[in-house]
Nucleic acid binder design. Structure first.
Length: 302
RNA sequence: GGCGCAGUAGCCAAGCGGUAAGGCAAUGGUCUGCAACACCAGUAUGCGCCGGUUCAAAUCCGGCCUGCGCCU
């Protein structure tokens, strides 16, 4: 039996997952796209060593912020962990807020066929830049009209992926998605989603972001910028970090982040933390939309 | 007390006689290799209040209320 415990950011998943691990003799596998990164502790609200209460945690702190990560990698690593934990007679508990990752494991979605074609991606990005999202989308309409219908013209990122998939595999992504959706994984799991009153959740988020500032998020970000991360990296899309990147870019579009960082003032930081609150609330809302759509979830209000 | 300016959605704000732009927030949704990503859709029978002019008023006129500034 596989246990999944998830919910919007700041509902209290971490605390609940530890309780669960004690009750069920379990180990925790983090399903979090940002907590995989070392050095990003405060901004990702990563669990602290002492909070683990001796419960083993997997897939936390496994990468440098300069490294790439994605669903495919997550799924492989997660499955390894599950096998390992079960072989030792313990219960695997997936805990974390990245719904897409959880879905990949529970539905056993097949990602192996297509790699990333960076040259082709760059070409398509240039096309969208120069001739507009419409031109790019028309390209997709020609090879895969079904996918074109499903993906909105303005969604350049997904349009590119669909085109890339077709080029790499010769198969339409709409057909691939169709077969994946029909698939039954056969995995025995319990999928719990923690939730609470929306306004209460938002209050907790605001409070948590204030706490992050007190705990030294500003210094943490400074150190990460020193490590040479750049705008486009996966790690810098994380809430609590990307707002700093954006603020730097408003001042200077091309200089290294670590250089611009020293020019930020107290007012800039105030604005950044306000933006982090808003982005986090939006995120929580999107997470809830995702979980509402998933089948087999067991909602827990608290 | 007098004079001037302002009052449009939760917030900011355009419109200045022809039937309420836009942005943010809030809300709902999409998602199958960057997902803490990317993207989409609604949201004022009404423009401080009352009356008047007009075929037609958020727009013009009068009074009142509130805020800001200046004067006494």
């Amino acid at each position: 039996m596989l246990i999944v415990i998830t919910g919007p950011t700041a509902v209290g998943k971490t605390k609940r997952s530890i309780e669960l691990a004690h009750e069920m003799n379990g180990e925790i596998i983090s399903a979090d796209s940002m907590q995989v990164y070392k050095h990003m502790d405060i901004g990702t609200a990563k669990i602290k060593k002492e909070e683990m209460e001796g419960v083993p945690h997997h897939l936390i702190d496994i990468l440098e912020p300069t490294e790439e990560f994605n669903v495919f990698k997550f799924k492989e690593l997660c499955n390894e962990c599950i096998r390992d934990i079960e072989s030792r007679g313990k219960t695997p508990i997936i805990a974390g807020g990245t719904g897409f990752y959880i879905q990949a494991v529970l539905k056993d979605v097949d990602f192996t066929e297509a790699e990333t074609d960076f040259k082709y991606r760059a070409e398509l990005e240039a096309l969208a830049e120069n001739e507009g999202a419409g031109a790019l989308h028309r390209l997709l309409s020609e090879v895969d009209p079904e996918a074109a219908k499903e993906i909105h013209e303005n969604n350049i990122k997904r349009t590119i992926r669909a085109l890339e998939y077709y080029k790499l595999t010769g198969e339409k992504i709409s057909e691939h998605n169709q077969t994946q959706r029909m698939k039954k994984s056969g995995i025995d799991y319990k999928y719990y989603v923690l939730n609470m009153d929306r306004s209460k959740l938002y209050e907790r988020i605001n409070l948590r972001v204030d706490l992050m500032r007190e705990e030294g998020l500003i210094d943490e970000v400074s150190k990460i910028f020193e490590m040479g991360v750049t705008d486009g990296m996966t790690s810098m899309q994380g809430i609590g970090y990307k707002e700093f990147v954006e603020a730097c870019r408003m001042k200077d579009e091309s200089a290294p982040l670590s250089e611009i960082y020293s020019q930020l003032s107290g007012k800039d930081f105030d604005d950044i933390f306000e933006k982090i609150k808003i982005d986090t609330r939006h995120f929580a809302k999107r997470q809830l939309t995702w979980f509402r759509r998933e089948e087999d979830v067991i909602w827990i209000e608290h």
